[in-house]
Design a protein around this nucleic acid. Structure first.
Length: 201
DNA sequence: CAAGTGATTTACT
DNA sequence: GTAAATCACTTGC
């Protein structure tokens, strides 16, 4: 499927700190199986961390509610929510059970299933298929039905995450998060420098 | 830059 | 229960 080798990611990996994971998940590949031999795949190039402590922008900051409940599970599952009447945002839950934290997938570089993504998005330009959290979710057809899905269950899950690239620090930009009011000054957004697939500079 | 969109949460009766 | 405010976005002007 890929010219370059991809590797599985262990369940324990997702128990690391959310900030480290937001940085390290750049270069991983998000893969959705759509048929026997058909896949949609894209390399994550932009993320944001939402921390379990001292982060008022985190959905889990106040308390556990029906919406944010997936964030309190053990890391490695999806947390997907509906926002602004139009869009879904997809997150990877992080850390140990009970913490309330996740990494938002903000943008990705399409690798496989380009035509399916183009259909899902209604857009042809490859750079615009996954250039934003709502667009990424739409390109992959993600919605609340995929909440709680285990990305590390390589035997059963329809969606899985693999390691493709490892970026050195000098190829990663760390800056402030986008579109939030509270704690907007915290530098918890990460993206691959010079990538043409990120949501914005 | 502003509008559109509806689920979710909170703050009250 | 009901109402109001909020919202980790996208598109088109």
């Amino acid at each position: 499927m890929f010219s370059k080798k991809i590797k599985r990611i262990s369940k324990e990996y997702y128990l690391n700190s959310t900030e480290k994971l937001a940085r390290d998940l750049l270069g991983s590949v998000f893969v959705k199986k759509i048929n026997q031999n058909e896949y949609i795949a894209a390399e994550i190039v932009e993320t944001e961390a939402y921390l379990p402590q001292g982060d008022l922008a985190c959905h889990a900051a106040v308390k556990k509610t029906p919406r944010n409940a997936p964030m309190f599970e053990s890391g490695g599952i999806l947390y997907i929510y509906f926002i602004y009447g139009n869009h879904f945002c997809s997150n990877i839950v992080t850390e140990t059970e009970g913490k309330g934290s996740a990494v938002l997938i903000r943008a990705a570089k399409p690798l496989e299933g380009i035509s399916e993504m183009q259909q899902n998005r209604g857009v042809l330009d490859i750079r615009k298929l996954c250039n934003g959290p709502g667009n990424f979710s739409k390109a992959f057809g993600l919605n609340k039905g995929y909440n709680y899905l285990d990305l590390s269950d390589y035997e059963n899950s329809e969606i899985q995450l693999f390691r493709l690239n490892n970026y050195p620090d000098n190829e990663i930009i760390q800056t402030t998060r986008i579109g939030i009011k509270k704690h907007s000054e915290l530098p918890l957004r990460f993206y691959v420098r010079d990538s043409e697939f990120i949501s914005r500079k």
